[in-house]
């Protein structure tokens, strides 16, 4: 039974839909890069961060962005060829919508917070001095 299953799958598996399954090497590279890109931000924040909070945040976000790309390439095997490029098209469309959702929400809500009456500002809200006062 096992032999027939293997024979059947061997023909099937090799490139059923042009889908790339990667190699041990590519998974190892992706894993090592991910470990490095995780260790940098965690180490930085756990040791108290740099003097400049902005720079620390920049490094943390930058590492995450690179790590997302590493996962896309080495774990999800993204390329422009699989499924005649439709995988990539769907991804690009999603990224555009995600950017609109995130940037739009933060922008709109930040403006609303900034333009609220001063006594309605909650603690910890980002405050803009000079608006409405």
């Amino acid at each position: 039974m096992a032999d027939t299953a293997h024979a059947k799958t061997a023909a099937h598996v090799h490139h059923p839909d042009g889908h790339d399954h990667g190699t041990y090497r590519s998974y190892a590279i992706g894993f090592i890069l991910s470990v490095i890109l995780t260790a940098i931000p965690f180490g930085l924040v756990m040791m108290g961060g740099l003097e400049s909070r902005l720079l620390t945040a920049g490094i943390v976000i930058g590492s995450a962005a690179i790590q997302v790309l590493v996962h896309m390439v080495y774990f999800l095997h993204m390329n422009g060829r699989s499924d005649e490029g439709w995988t990539m098209m769907a991804l690009i469309f999603t990224v555009v919508v995600v950017v609109i959702i995130l940037a739009g929400s933060l922008w709109v809500m930040h403006n609303m917070n900034a333009n609220m009456m001063p006594q309605m500002n909650h603690d910890g809200m980002p405050q803009l001095s000079g608006f409405g006062t």
Partner: peptide
């Protein structure tokens, strides 16, 4: 795992800076 990168970055790490 990709979503988790966003979670640990924006929720945990940036919250702790």
């Amino acid at each position: 795992d990709v979503i988790w990168i966003g979670v640990f970055t924006f929720v945990y790490l940036l919250g702790m800076i």
